[in-house]
Structures are given as C-alpha cells and as structure tokens.
Design a binder for these strands. Structure first.
Lengths: 273, 273
DNA sequence: AGCGGAATGGAATAAATATTCCAAAACCGC
DNA sequence: GCGGTTTTGGAATATTTATTCCATTCCGCT
C-alpha cells in the first residue's frame, strides 16, 4: 500500500463504507475476501477478534491486518475502536464534564445552554438507537384498551407525567394525574379495567412505586417508564420503557423522556380512534 | 460467595437481568456499584474491557471480576461472551435507524418516536444557533438579585415552570410556583424585591399574561420565556428569552424549552452562590 | 520458461487484557 | 475496644489477542 492510501482513516461508519466500496475492486484475492466479508458483517467488527473475522473471511489473520491498514487504520484495534464508539457515541467523561459544570458554574449562561443542548441531543440520539419497539408496542396496547389511564410521577418525573395527561386530555383519552396534592393518594380511584403508567428515575420515589404495586396487586396492567430495566419499578410492570437520559443529579435534560412520553401518548390516543 | 451462588451462569440476557435485580440488594458497597453500573450500561459489556467497565463503575478491576463470579460466570470473559452473542446485529447509525423506524408506517409508535426525536434535535440545534446571550445574561441578573422568584406557566408551559421550580428548590433558591390549583391566583404573594418569570406560548394563556402584567404594574422585573419577540408577553417584560420549538403535529417536544429553562435555573442558582 | 514485483501464510514477538492471590482495611457482633 | 469475618485494592501472573516480519508462493510480462 502506498502512502497516499494510508493517509486518512475513516472517521465515521459512513466514511468507512464509502472507502470500502471504492477500494474493493482494486484489491487482490485475499484482501478482496476480507473486504467482502467485512462489508457483509460490519456489525460484527465491534465484538470480534482478528482471529474470528479472519476465520469468517477464510483468510489468515495477517491478511486481515493488511486489510485494516489498507483501509487507512494503523491496525485492527484502531478500526475496531471506530465501531465500538459508533455503537453509542460519547459516553465517557460526560459525568466529569457535568461535574465541572456544576462546580465552576461553567462560565457564562451561554456556555450552560450549549452544554444542555449537547446533553439533550445526545439523549435523543441514544433513544433513537436503543428504542425497544416491542416494549413500546406492548405499552401502547395496554394503555389503549384501558378504561382510564392513571399517570403517576413525582419530582423530576412530574413534568413528564403532567405533560402526558395534558396530551391525553387533548386527545380525549380519559386520564387521571396522581399528583399527591395535599398528600392524598388516590389509590381507590383505580378501578377494574383501568391501567397505570408509572414514571420514575433513580432515586425512585416511594409514592410512585407504592401506587404501581397497589395497581399490580389488584391485577391492573402497569406500564413503566424508567431509567433501567433493573429499576425496582421494572420488576412489577407489564411493559417497561427505558429512557436513556444523560443525567447529572437534579439536572436531566428530559429531552428523550419527553419524546418518548409524547410518542406514547399520541400513539395511545390514535389507537383509541 | 458460596457454591450455591456460583452454580448456574445466566444463559440469556433476560436471566442475567433477573439475577442482577435479585442480588443487587444483598451486595456490599463496591459490588453494588458494579451491579448498578452494569445494570445501567448492559449494552456496553459486549464492547468493553474489564478496565473500562471498572473505571466506569469507579471500582478496581478486581472488584468487577468478583462481581462476574457472583453473577455465576467463571470470569469476565464468559460473561462478555453472553453479550457478544446476544449482540443485535446492526444498530445502524442514527440517521439509518431513524429511517428504519419511520418505515414501520406513519402513525406507528416507532415512527412517532422518530418524528419527535427529530423535532427535538432540530429545536435544540436552532436554539444553539439563535440564542440571544445578551437577553439571557440580563434575565439571569434580574432573577439572581430577586428575593423570591415567582414562576408561572400554564398548560403546555406548566411542565417547564414546574421543573424550574424543582431545580430552584434543589439549588436553594427561594421560588414559588403559581400553579392556579383551586383557581387561586397568588397575586398578593408578589412582594417588593421579588421577580417573576413567566412562560407562555401561543395561544398565550390568560392567567400568565395577567400575572405578568400585575407584577409589572407594581414595578417588579418580569422575565419572559416565550415563542416570539412579538408575543403579548414580550411587550411587558424586562428580558425576553425566545425559544424556537419545532412542533410535530399539535405537540411540542419542549426539548429546547427545557434546555433553556435548565440553563437559566442553574445560572441563577450559581450566581446566587 | 524465466524474471521481478506483488501477495501470502505462518511463526515469532509485542501488547493488551483477564484473572488470581494475598495482605491490609473495614465491618460486625459482642 | 476486641476477635473474627467479610470486603477491598493492587501487584503478580496467566492468557488471549494484535502485530510484525520474512521466507515462500503466485502472477503477469517478455
């Protein structure tokens, strides 16, 4: 391989594909095999070893090494890095960044906006990538056939809960917001045929968990919107929607959460006709 | 760990999660950290090294090793194998994924998510470009030197108003939410030295405009968060923050609005020390 | 057929990563 | 506070994995 070919490593998966398409024709036999196999199994690069891929392409490992270099990388590891990072971008040192932000006041308000914008964009992107459509469909089903939808969310989750009820209202879906005004729980408002949508993130709020448990005990379907599949809420729910939000203490951007919530509400509203 | 615990390694990701949920509560500190981090980043296991994950969970590598064994695996490699095999081929990049989601047909929940994600990202992008830093600085100034910050927002703006008060609370800024519960307006709660933050979008809600007007009449500073410089609210305010929100259908994603709100709240909280 | 340059395979080496082990620290029940 | 037990961190080791190098093979050209 000449110097010109080696100069630039693809910086994105897109670029990688382009480059691959361009050079494939010019390669000799073994390297062509590499190119073909890699092209057909791009997704496996992130989780495989040189030996695995070489075996798959039916070439010796050294051939695959050469292939990586021809693609512009210094070696296999560098190529793999591209795919591992593309998988979910930018997760490292986000918490660090935001700790600084919190401590130093992050300079100007304008800089703050930039940070929050970035956090929001990232959250949305990850949501799009990691959305579990099956769970979402299930959630829509459950809520669409309920008589009344009960929505509960406290503290950080409250804006989301409220907004969902607002949208339900607009779409003429019978919905009740459990807001604990005056410390009343409205547990007896849960009637047979109803369903409950519970929203909570770590640290999980007691009231929300209790209400969800209560509903479950009575055999009502529970849909959870939470941060992890292992959250205490998830265990007692019939459908679990996880929302990946870039999170720093009290400051969650809520972008992804609201996108998910709106979609759910609109889908339910539509399904009810 | 006793032999019983070690006997069975989870054979599927499902089993893994169940096991994780069950044992999490029984673990000591460091191992708990592992469990939490792993729970929140299960998707990273397939593409990370022991060192990476350990760093993420903020524990030494050996702790993570122990965690793997407690989960029933012989070591990290075996655990990773599970996730590498379960690795869903092809998480295409963001734009491809969006396209896929939409292909499920307009109106499908997945397609809705795609739309709202796009609307949100677009809004954030526009916000970043069009931010009026002068107005933002002015707003921060006004609110930072107020005794109590009164926040008002109804309907769609209410989630934002609530969230701001929540953050103010966290940052120990005296703030009052005007939520009109029981149709009470708390206009007499506005005291000399206070400031008001009013949030409203077209169609502008009467109560919000009235309260802002009221505050202005008494000479209190009014900060507005609204959709256009020409909104009725803008005319009676001392600082106007416009938020460009891209709507999808009748519903706004609120991404940009919340980014702006958070920034404002944090900036004010910081400025107050 | 014979020459020269490119391509190849495999063995040797380097680097990284996982795993174990043990002394020190923290914790717990008394 | 004290002895026993559990938990922890880190250094030492084992293992896997990437990378290089070079002798050999292949291929096109005259």
């Amino acid at each position: 391989m000449d110097a010109a070919t080696r100069l630039s490593a693809p910086a994105t998966v897109e670029e990688f594909r382009d480059r691959l398409a361009v050079i494939t024709d010019t390669l000799p036999k073994r390297l062509r095999q590499c190119a073909d196999f890699i092209g057909a199994h791009t997704d496996r690069i992130a989780v495989s070893t040189v030996a695995d891929l070489a075996a798959g392409a039916d070439v010796p490992p050294s051939a695959l090494m050469r292939f990586c270099q021809i693609m512009g990388f210094t070696g296999f590891s560098e190529m793999q890095k591209l795919f591992r990072e593309a998988y979910v971008p930018g997760w490292p040192d986000y918490s660090t960044r935001l700790r600084n932000l919190k401590e130093n006041g992050a300079g100007s308000p304008g800089a703050l906006v930039a940070e929050f914008v970035e956090a929001g964009r990232l959250s949305l992107e990850v949501l799009a990538k990691s959305l579990d459509e099956t769970a979402l469909d299930a959630a829509v089903q459950l809520l669409a056939k309920a008589d009344t939808v009960h929505v509960v969310g406290m503290r950080r989750a409250f804006p989301v809960a409220f907004y969902m009820v607002y949208v339900f209202e607009k779409m003429q879906v019978p919905a009740m917001l459990h807001d604990a005004v005056g410390k009343l729980d409205h547990r007896y408002a849960l009637r047979p045929g109803d369903a409950i949508l519970a929203i909570t993130f770590a640290p999980y709020s007691e009231e929300t968990l209790t209400l969800a448990q209560d509903a479950r005990d009575r055999g009502l379907p529970v849909v959870a919107m939470t941060d992890q599949l292992t959250s205490p809420l998830a265990r007692q729910s019939d459908a679990v929607l996880t929302v990946p939000e870039v999170d720093f203490g009290a400051f969650r951007s809520l972008s992804a959460t609201i996108a998910m919530a709106l979609s759910l509400a609109v889908a339910v509203g539509t399904a009810r006709g």
